[in-house]
């Protein structure tokens, strides 16, 4: 699969010496949903703003569809759609006019049918003649998405698209993003809601202190970095971990009623069979058991907590 975005050794140091990005390398494949995760101030928005042309890089290059973002800015920017983190909207303009304006600004000839299709897909059609000042925060967020989609981008940046929107609207937006992917649009999504990336992203990148610390297929990441645990609900509480279980990574709950065993699915032998045999040998009985896997959020927190 070809890259629609290639970032090579990109760096940004702001006036005053703040290093926002350090030697960033990133390849985004055409047609994927890429989740870019990172804590506040990690460099996510700086990276997006450089690719979109709003921030000048200090060094390095970025190619969009093979075109340099500085030398061939007309070509690259006409491909990109951006939904920013804040809600900068033309307060006194109507939904229809602001979406049509965006289309023209990006060099596309008027196409009322396309604008209508976009507004309908975002449930904005009934609000097309409403002034933006009259809309709720969630609807304004949709307007920003409509503006970005009005000029038919191939690469769409969604910078915190569901920040401050209710659960129902978030689900709607997830559906819109999935439909975009089906239509061939590449989506780069930054979010604080890790479950959003877990739900939608094909691949995940983690950025921290201006450096990309990990890029991986989401499922592989969760399989490789995710921890699994087996919890046994004991028939009789134990006063402590029996000596016969010393060789296992087991933890007894405070009330002695649950025994938790951490294991790694990558290992050839998870040790579960041996553990169950040892429990039987020790005469420990249990009346229920369950397994769980760490979420992407837990993996993310673990990654960004590591020293820089």
């Amino acid at each position: 699969m070809s890259s629609i975005l290639s970032v090579r050794q990109l760096g940004k140091t702001y006036a005053g010496g703040v290093v926002a990005l350090k030697d960033v390398d990133l390849e985004i494949e055409r047609g994927e949903i890429f989740g870019l995760l990172g804590p506040n101030g990690a460099g996510k928005t700086t990276l997006i703003n450089i690719v979109c042309g709003m921030v000048n890089p200090t060094y390095g290059t970025a190619l969009v569809d093979g075109h340099d973002i500085v030398r061939d800015f007309r070509k690259t920017r006409s491909i990109i759609g951006l939904v920013p983190q804040e809600l900068p909207v033309e307060t006194f303009e109507t939904v229809w006019k602001t979406a049509s304006f965006s289309r023209g600004l990006f060099g596309k000839p008027p196409n009322p049918e396309h604008v209508e299709k976009v507004l309908r897909s975002l449930s904005l059609w009934d609000k097309r003649d409403a002034r933006i000042i009259e809309l709720s925060g969630g609807m304004k967020r949709r307007v920003l998405i409509a503006k970005a989609l009005s000029h038919e981008p191939e690469l769409l940046f969604l910078d915190e698209p569901t920040a401050g929107v209710d659960v129902e609207l978030r689900q709607d937006m997830w559906n819109v993003v999935r439909e975009l992917r089906e239509s061939g649009v590449t989506v780069i999504l930054t979010t604080h809601y890790i479950e959003e990336a877990e739900e939608m992203a094909d691949r995940v990148g983690v950025i921290n202190h201006g450096e990309i610390i990990l890029v991986q297929d989401k499922n592989t990441l969760m399989r490789e970095l995710g921890k699994k645990e087996l919890t046994l609900h004991l028939s009789e509480p134990l006063p402590g971990v029996p000596p016969g279980l010393d060789g296992y990574r087991v933890v007894l709950s405070d009330d002695g009623s649950e025994l938790t065993y951490h294991y790694d699915t990558k290992e050839e032998h998870t040790g579960i069979t041996a553990l169950l045999a040892s429990l039987q040998a020790e005469g420990i009985r249990f009346n229920d058991l369950n397994t769980s896997q760490s979420s992407l959020e837990e993996i993310f927190v673990d990654l960004v907590k590591r020293p820089a």
Binding site: G53, M54, R77, P84, S102
Partner: peptide, 8 residues
């Protein structure tokens, strides 16, 4: 932001 990110 929109003008700055547009192909103009």
């Amino acid at each position: 932001f929109e003008v700055l990110s547009a192909p103009v």
